[in-house]
């Protein structure tokens, strides 16, 4: 299999950057997309050229590191998938594949396809945790939680913070990420002591980081590898109004 990779190259955050095209031969349709990029980088090393910088960690679809924009879609042509779970069989032989970094003011490009997603970390720092006593682990069944609540909390907790929601959103809104993190904890008894503070402070940080408004295009839930539902954003809004009234 042979493809042309048209990749965004940018040496540092201050450089302008631009696309560069690479012809890559001897690819296998069963290779993962990241393996194809590895193959390209090996060729670049042999040619004494700078390798393409891209992020990855687990390559199992659970870490959220490998976010790139491929042919006009976050994580490539399929819905609800990470880049590492994308395979070359999803592309045509001879196709030109355009790869760009996440585009958002709050996710500045560090190098090539790597962006700085620490804005997410700062949102988490504002309340994406619970206060628990240290020491011996408490009895697991001490706080019973209903199946429906536990399912909803786990669905929200599935967010891996890859940033595809921000990347695909025309407004670079971080509402899906922030709402998933808020709802996950605010649904559970353990999250109650900080429930109001959490929603107010995490959303304030989201605004401070420069993310845009959510206009409910729904693109985020289609590109989210974990299929986090957009109703989480509506739930976050409800929690915000409640916190503003009662806190």
């Amino acid at each position: 299999m042979k493809v042309a990779f048209r990749i965004w190259r940018q040496d540092n955050p201050n450089e302008k950057g631009g696309f560069k095209e690479y012809q890559v031969d001897n690819l296998n349709a069963d290779m993962s997309f990241l393996e194809a990029l590895d193959h390209l980088n090996e060729l670049l090393v042999l040619r004494n050229e700078k390798v393409v910088a891209f992020e990855y960690d687990c390559r199992e679809g659970i870490c959220g590191q490998c976010g790139v924009f491929i042919n006009g879609r976050a994580h490539g042509p399929h819905d609800n998938v990470t880049t590492c779970q994308l395979h070359m069989r999803s592309f045509q032989d001879g196709e030109t594949i355009v790869i760009e970094p996440w585009r958002a003011k709050s996710f500045p490009v560090i190098k090539d396809l790597i962006v700085d997603r620490s804005a997410f970390d700062r949102i988490i720092e504002q309340g994406g945790y619970i206060s628990a006593k240290t020491g011996t682990a408490p009895e697991a069944n001490a706080i019973p939680i209903g199946k429906e609540i536990s399912d909803r909390a786990m669905d929200a907790a599935a967010c891996i913070g890859c940033g595809a929601c921000v990347a695909t959103c025309k407004n670079s809104s971080a509402a899906l990420f922030t709402s998933a993190k808020i709802n996950h904890l605010n649904l559970l008894p353990q999250g109650q002591p900080e429930a109001y503070r959490r929603v107010i402070e995490m959303t304030a940080q989201m605004a401070k980081e420069g993310f845009g408004h959510c206009t409910f295009t729904g693109a985020c839930e289609v590109e989210c590898p974990e299929g986090i539902s957009i109703t989480n954003i509506a739930e976050m809004n409800a929690r915000y109004f409640k916190a503003k009234i009662f806190s």
Partner: peptide, 21 residues
């Protein structure tokens, strides 16, 4: 205005019709 500021660089290729109306 805020939304435009939040996305100063557009994608060279964007198939938004595949994920939203």
């Amino acid at each position: 205005l805020r939304n435009k500021k939040a996305k100063p660089t557009k994608y060279a290729v964007n198939r938004s019709s595949e994920n939203s109306t």
